[in-house]
């Protein structure tokens, strides 16, 4: 998927090549003496893609989303949405936001929540009624529409949370961890709806901790670490680039702390990342490096349970680039 294959969905003011979101050298410091939450960060999200922002806790994902939504001002740098420098009412109407926690009123019904947020987005009358029904259908919560949200399951709440962000048919949708802590059925439904929105030309920017989700859904990703983009690109290109030089070893027990650094000193071994029982290493000659790694592990009383070559995944890439930051 590239921006060239879809018509401009951002309205008459934006050309086909105008990126949906441009973040240029943005820095954000909450206190002058604190490390920056965002450090000279630049990202370009083309129109009509699903773009994933990945990163460990504290990488700056939420800060970035808050800046994009206009809730925070960057200390330096600039943000452009649909080619606009400022977040005018017109630009805001183009934007749909789905916060991480369901941002809904528990003592109102699902329908009342949709009606309220619809009115806040400027919808009225038949148009509002039509959109409320459409959103109930998209979320598949029509049977619960007139029950108070406090009686909904977690999955239903997340689905309602999603469609409230869609009530005004935004052209750019920003989602913060949309599928965290929900059942597989609701997750699958949300994935399906996001694909449908993408097919309808909506640009989607989402953050997620689920690498598998990002791999399945996103066309492009940017991995953040300590407020900077450490790797960025189209998902299939990233996977192809990291496939040939990857070794994945499953361990019989957890390696001692800091062991990854020891392994990185071995001759012929590139980056090493350790997460629980999973060790991922890169090497120009994977077979030779694997022998060196196995010997070093054995010397420290750790045995390999399995070993695979060339099985690159976003998780491997994530662990490789975020390193120790990814550890809980």
């Amino acid at each position: 998927m590239t921006s060239a294959c879809i018509p401009s969905a951002l309205g008459p003011g934006a050309g086909i090549e105008t990126p949906a979101i441009e973040v240029r050298q943005v820095s954000k410091r909450f206190r002058p003496d604190a490390p920056p939450a965002l450090d000279d960060l630049s990202i370009t999200v083309p129109q009509g893609v699903i773009f994933g922002i990945l990163g460990p806790n504290g990488a700056g994902k939420t800060t970035l989303l808050s800046i994009l939504c206009g809730l925070l001002k960057p200390t330096a740098g600039s943000v452009r949405l649909a080619g606009h420098d400022t977040l005018t009412a017109e630009v805001k109407r183009m934007l749909g936001v789905v916060p991480q926690e369901p941002a809904i009123y528990p003592t109102l019904t699902g329908r009342e929540n949709l009606e309220y947020f619809g009115r806040m987005q400027g919808l009225r009358g038949a148009r509002l009624a039509e959109r409320v029904e459409a959103c109930l259908k998209i979320a598949e919560i029509g049977d619960q529409a007139d029950r108070r949200v406090e009686h909904y399951s977690g999955g239903y709440k997340r689905r309602l949370n999603l469609v409230i962000g869609l009530i005004h048919e935004p052209r750019i949708l920003i989602l913060d961890e949309p599928t965290v802590a929900i059942d597989p059925h609701s997750r699958s439904l949300i994935h399906q709806r996001l694909r449908e929105l993408h097919a309808a030309g909506v640009t989607i920017l989402l953050t997620t901790h689920y690498m598998e989700e990002a791999e399945q859904l996103c066309h492009q990703v940017a991995i953040l670490s300590r407020g900077r983009v450490v790797v960025e690109g189209e998902v299939h290109a990233l996977l192809a680039r990291h496939r040939d030089d990857t070794i994945q070893i499953t361990l019989d027990r957890e390696a001692p702390p800091g062991f990854a650094l020891t392994l990185q000193q071995l001759p012929g071994v590139g980056d090493v990342s350790l997460s629980g029982l999973c060790l991922v290493a890169t090497a120009p000659r994977p077979t030779e490096a694997a022998l060196a790694l196995l010997e070093a592990l054995r010397a420290h009383g750790v045995e390999a349970v399995s070993l695979e070559y060339g099985q690159a995944s976003l998780e491997h890439i994530f662990l490789r680039y975020t390193g120790e930051d990814a550890r809980p």
Binding site: L95, V97, Y105, F117, Q121
Partner: peptide, 16 residues
Amino acid sequence: KERDQGSLFRLQTMTV
């Protein structure tokens, strides 16, 4: 509560 629930945050992202 409204702020903690995120609904105030959602309203702030709108033209309200």
